[in-house]
Amino acid sequence: MTSQPKSTKRTQIPGELVFACLLLSLSLLIAFYALSISGFSSMSSPGSIPMLAALFMLVSSLITVIKTTGTTTKNSTFITRLTPPILLFFASISLTYILVIDQLGFLISSGLFLFASILALYRQGPSIAMLVSINTLAIIYIIFRLIFKVILPEANLWE
């Protein structure tokens, strides 16, 4: 029922099989934890729905793994297809941003992030990047902090 003739002839994307296997192991892990919540103690135990969900994950990821094996890889590598340099750069700079936001505070960390990433992605020189960053920050600050009184992360590096 689930197998469509189209998908079996399909070439796979680099790393697809590995990814499918990763999801299968994730399902196994989740099934293991779901089982440990309350086991099969009763119909209404807290673990019943998590176990059922884990079962669905297991079966469906297994099907995906089986369907993916046997397909051939297209002429491209994992790097070019999934993680081109620009993506790696942007992902790591975003990750750094969210990791330091608590220490540097919202304004400084977001400012640095915006400036650096716009500089790299838009490639029209630092002055535009700077201007756009400042404007964006100001607008966000006014809407969130001043109008809606949302507390934004504040620098606690020097406290």
């Binding site: 002055s127 535009i128 201007l131 400042i134 404007n135 100001a138 600050y141 006014i142």
Partner: peptide, 19 residues
């Protein structure tokens, strides 16, 4: 575009400063 952005910056940073 630059002029427009500059103008906005001045206005909002003024508001933020007052705040």
């Amino acid at each position: 575009l630059v002029l427009w952005l500059l103008l906005t910056s001045v206005t909002v940073s003024g508001a933020a400063f007052v705040h």
